[in-house]
């Protein structure tokens, strides 16, 4: 059995007059220790999908099996425990603005009931891992986007997770910073064996660190497989379109540079 197994997952948002099918019958499997990418244009449902994995969104139908446990069936208490194994980083970083960097990293350990002294020691280690130890006493407002995301990654590590979900984690960053953050994620994946699930609309992110990729289009999973295959020989319209956008933007960048 795969580490993360999503079966027949559907999510519909019911409005007053109409309902929106955010996800239709999604099936996919993610293996332990891999970096898995989920790509799609905005509105494709990829954010909803990743938020179903830790049940920030409750699916309407289907199973989400993590290490054999079906997430929607868990009790509140079991769900909280399971969530501690699934860290998440966000596009907008979502740090506590009134706490300094060190205390932000301590937060998950506070939740887990780890003693303050030990938590602080561990937090300092995580800050070293993400190479931002010198900012321990700074407040989020004093940091750049890339630095904030490093702190968020340190916070994710602090819950000692088996999975890290990245919800457009590099979309608010410039290309150079994006590259550095991706490298850091790759290094964490290798050093700690943490499974990484990346949601993005940028082909480049998938290309740089993902092993396998799923393409979402209007709530449907239209293509899935190893990154090299999907990129070399895209079958779905959505994948072709994404590749085209990438080429165009690269051309644009080259023209801009020269």
């Amino acid at each position: 059995m795969s580490f993360i197994q999503i079966e027949h997952l559907s999510k519909t948002y019911k409005g007053k007059d109409d309902s929106v099918h955010a996800l239709n019958d999604i099936n996919l499997t993610i293996e332990k220790g891999e970096i898995y990418g989920i790509i799609g244009l905005s509105g494709a449902g990829k954010s909803t999908l990743v938020r179903c994995i830790n049940l920030l969104e409750r699916p309407c139908e289907g199973k989400i099996l993590i290490d054999g446990k079906n997430m929607p069936e868990l009790s509140e208490k079991e769900l909280r425990e399971e969530r501690r194994k699934i860290a998440m980083i966000f596009q907008q970083f979502n740090l506590l603005m009134q706490r300094n960097v060190l205390d932000n990293v301590c937060f998950p350990m506070e939740i887990a009931g780890i003693k303050r002294k030990e938590a602080r020691l561990r937090a300092k280690e995580y800050l070293k891992t993400v190479e931002i130890a010198e900012k321990a006493k700074a407040y989020p407002v004093q940091l750049s986007g890339g630095q904030k995301q490093r702190v968020a990654i340190a916070r994710a590590l602090a819950s000692n997770p088996e999975i890290i979900l990245c919800d457009e984690a590099t979309s608010a960053l410039d290309p150079q910073t994006t590259g550095r953050i991706l490298k850091l994620l790759k290094q964490i994946n290798e050093d700690y064996g943490i499974t990484v699930v990346i949601i993005t609309h940028e082909m480049r992110v998938i290309e740089e660190i993902c092993g396998r990729v799923a393409v979402l289009d209007k709530g449907n999973l239209v293509e899935e497989g190893p990154v090299s295959e999907v990129f070399k020989n895209p079958k779905s319209k959505a994948a072709k379109r994404l590749l085209l956008t990438k080429e165009l933007s690269e051309e644009g960048e080259e023209n801009g540079l020269n």
């Binding site: 830790n54 920030l56 909280r80 425990e81 399971e82 969530r83 501690r84 699934i86 860290a87 998440m88 966000f90 907008q92 979502n94 740090l95 506590l96 603005m97 009134q98 706490r99 937060f107 998950p108 506070e110 939740i111 887990a112 916070r155 819950s159 979900l165």
Partner: peptide, 26 residues
């Protein structure tokens, strides 16, 4: 910010913890 609340929930925080350590503190 709702995102911060979500971050806390995603870390497995109890609702009461979210109220005291996130909502009131922030």
């Amino acid at each position: 910010d709702k995102g911060v609340v979500e971050a806390a929930l995603s870390l497995g925080a109890k609702k009461f913890t979210v109220i005291t350590k996130v909502l009131l503190a922030e």
